[in-house]
């Protein structure tokens, strides 16, 4: 173990805002977001890269932020659930999840919203199979998947 804690300087844009930070190399991206930047919308679920509650976009790609080091965001851009709404208006995906009751306890929702965001960016008209594949890495323990499907389909129509 290192005698002295090494700190690494990173620059990262989160939801459009530039941050310059000194971080421990072992700091996880999800901890950087939640603890250092106070963006607690990104949740920690299983903490073992299974459940997807911590999903954020890193340089346009959905990743599980509990399994990415904060230093990996250096020079990059992160989008969290807090970055979806604009000017106090919910994002159409967020509205669709609300309208279709695509959430129960809401714990998995930030991750599902980000996975949906990535899906619809790449595929404006996803099939049932495309949706299944896109959210296979997001676990909902309330098992509200049917309404999540409805919400994603509605969001795709509205997008």
């Amino acid at each position: 173990m290192p005698e002295q804690e090494q700190m690494v300087a990173i620059r990262v844009k989160v939801n459009g805002k530039e941050h310059k930070l000194q971080v421990e190399p072992r700091l996880l991206l999800v901890e950087l977001l939640r603890e250092n930047l106070d963006l607690t919308g990104t949740h920690i679920g299983c903490d073992t890269s299974y459940c997807g509650a911590c999903t954020v976009l890193l340089n346009g790609k959905a990743v599980k932020s509990c399994t990415v080091l904060a230093v990996h965001a250096d020079g990059g851009e992160v989008l969290t659930v807090e970055g979806l709404a604009k000017n106090g208006e919910l994002h159409p995906i967020q509205k669709a999840f609300g309208d279709a009751y695509g959430l129960q306890c809401g714990y998995c929702t930030p991750g599902l919203l980000i996975s949906t965001y990535q899906l619809l960016q790449r595929n404006a008209n996803p099939s049932e199979k495309d949706i299944r594949k896109a959210i296979a890495g997001n676990t909902c323990r309330c098992t509200g998947y049917q309404n999540v499907f409805k919400a994603i389909k509605a969001a795709a129509k509205g997008a």
């Binding site: 997807g52 599980k64 996975s115 990535q118 890495g137």
Partner: peptide, 9 residues
């Protein structure tokens, strides 16, 4: 392989 998020990394 795994899921979208893991395939991205």
């Amino acid at each position: 392989i795994a899921d979208v998020q893991i395939r991205n990394r």
